[in-house]
Amino acid sequence: MKQLFYIIFFALLLFFSCKKDPITNDPTPAPLSSIQVNLNNMVDDSLLVLNKNYFTSAGDSFMVSKFKYYLSNFVFTLEDGSEYTEPESYHLIRHTNGISSFTITQVPLGGYKAVRFMIGVDSTHNVSGTQPGDLESSYASDMFWTWSSGYIFLKLEGTAPKSPASDKLIEYHIGGYGGKYKTQRDFNFNFGFGRLNVLQTKLPVLNLKVNVNEIFKTPVAIDFSSLPTVVAGGFYAKQLADNYADMISLKSIDNP
């Protein structure tokens, strides 16, 4: 009979342990503050202005009318190597003239020495139905393919004199969340001796430079006359993703 009670006891234990969160003895939660992330969308050294003429590295003229992309899964590394992972970290950047920015809130205070994130949306969130926040905005912002489910990770539209498409359009809708043509690309920036200081009272800024011209440059130079549009995942989308894999660079960290 005693044995039986043990069994019931364990059964109950099992039951409760699967339901409740592990009990932690945290006295008070760490104080939290925020980081502002600035995206300086540029063509080489000038800030991107919509519908203005620019030249690719190969010397081809083009204009941009729309430039949007997803940055996600931000992880910041503290001095001691511990990490802060932003929950539900999905940011849709919609270029309007000027610097685009968003704020990551609830970041534990401290000096951060590195950041990593990616362009695109992880495959799990591509296959799990409707999502809140910036992912939900994808439907209204045409950043979701409705006929072949999945987020469009980067969208650049405009015109180029060399384009054979009607109205000289160029359209690059890049996405594809899994398999050999996946188009998420990781970025990892170490701040060297610098630190991004997250304080209670001041808002530090992470300044990133996003160079549109990198999308057309390497490893595969994009020729507007032969590839004016890519509007689905696959071989060409991957080619453009390999190009944008070095589109973002660290410009500066500003501690006010």
């Binding site: 296959v127 409707t130 072949s148 489910s149």
Partner: peptide
Amino acid sequence: GGINHIEV
């Protein structure tokens, strides 16, 4: 099979 989830 282009649509991968009942919610979308």
